[in-house]
Design a protein around this nucleic acid. Structure first.
Lengths: 220, 220
DNA sequence: TTGCCTTCTTGAGATAGATCAATTTTTTAA
DNA sequence: TTAAAAAATTGATCTATCTCAAGAAGGCAA
């Protein structure tokens, strides 16, 4: 039985858990749900769910967002395989009035908070790793918040794309979500995003083809 | 020698460290700078500082902000006594291109990252507590980000004030910073904040007197 | 207390981006 | 493969908020 097919595989594939030894992983199995399928468009989590778990996205993609009274949707995170969510409610009870929606057919594992807390007590290494995960998330949200409030639409888009470029091996990469959703993430209307991408093309900065972005003049 | 006057007092007053035993606190003293005075307007931290520490604000107040190329300032956090900053760079090296500026004469203690990391390894309780701190911070930034992108100016101000009301014992409370700074935090121009506060007064929601806000009809 | 300096307010005008509506393009599913 | 649905684009208009400018009010130092 290889790790790929074992009940622990899903957890082991998440960076947060990847350094745990097999025995520890196995100890988590009874407290976890294994690779549930969430079809595209279904909710992995809704506000007021009995949210007693941490979610690990094993396969697929998802968006984490909040909806205002007026119906406006704001995307906070876009999840890719290996990403984790639900840490916010690990310790204190917090209102987490956001949705997690599968953007494609996705597989999700979850670990109960209780089990995870117990594991944290025993494993300082895991705690440090989670601290790191939090730190990354915090920096990402701060970054987006700064971008939102200090840059005009065009530069905001460019700034986002450059970040993507930095974490890509080639000068071409794919947007992780539909443009409509990217717009929400960047605090723009879809129309404005479309226009700004066009403007950036006219400036000769990028080439856009569907979800594929190519930087014409790699900076640095 | 009471705890108030000892070299460990500053750390002990911060919630993050408050549950540590005295012996552990004392072990941190050699790796920390004790209660440095930062006069109003001075920088506790600047981008590209040799930022090798975690800061604990013992007395006073400070703003954490970033400045864009175009000179626009965005306030991410407003620090009050007991608050901590600098965790972002605890583990990985991250660009922390923000300023921390004392808003009044402030006293700050700092602990070197190295010493803090070592302590974290030894104290799972501290690690869990820090995790909690991170979680609070994350939720706060997320909240503000959602507010920014889903609400009109007036409701954004009201939403902020209601949060403040919730964490206040009376229906009157004081804004933690100048209105100019609050505006930046909320993603507004000072003029717009001024006008919206006036509008909320006309609506009969609040009374404003300088930095003092009184809710006329306490909700809930 | 006086005067200076900063913060806050108020008004008028400018504008970035939103909204609305109509196509076009792409994706999905039958 | 094709029809239907969803996403993206484009144009025209609208508006919430910013910017600029001037004045009022508040705080601090001498």
């Amino acid at each position: 039985m290889t790790i790929q097919h074992s009940a622990t595989a899903c957890l082991a594939r998440a960076p947060l858990f990847s350094s745990l030894d097999l025995e520890t992983l196995i100890s988590l199995v009874p407290a976890s749900k294994h690779r549930q399928l969430f079809p595209r468009g279904s909710f992995i989590k809704q506000p007021f769910d009995n949210n007693d778990g941490m979610f690990v996205l094993d396969q697929g993609s998802a968006k984490v967002y909040s909806v205002s009274d007026t119906g406006k949707e704001k995307i906070l995170y876009m999840m890719k395989p290996g990403d984790i969510t639900g840490q916010e409610t690990l310790f204190s009870v917090r209102k987490t009035d956001y949705f997690i929606e599968a953007l494609e057919d996705s597989y999700v594992c979850s670990v109960s908070h209780r089990a995870f807390q117990q594991l944290l007590q025993k494993s300082p290494a895991l705690c440090l790793k989670l601290l790191n995960t939090f730190g990354d998330k915090l920096v990402a949200v701060e970054q987006n918040s700064i971008r939102r409030d200090t840059l005009l639409a065009k530069d905001r888009v460019l700034s986002y794309l450059k970040d993507k470029l930095d974490s890509s091996t080639s000068s071409t990469f794919q947007l992780p979500v539909k443009k409509k959703e990217l717009a929400s993430f960047l605090g723009l209307s879809p129309e404005t995003l479309s226009r700004q991408l066009k403007a950036l093309q006219k400036d000769g900065e990028i080439t856009v083809s569907g979800r594929n972005i190519t930087f014409t003049t790699p900076r640095y």
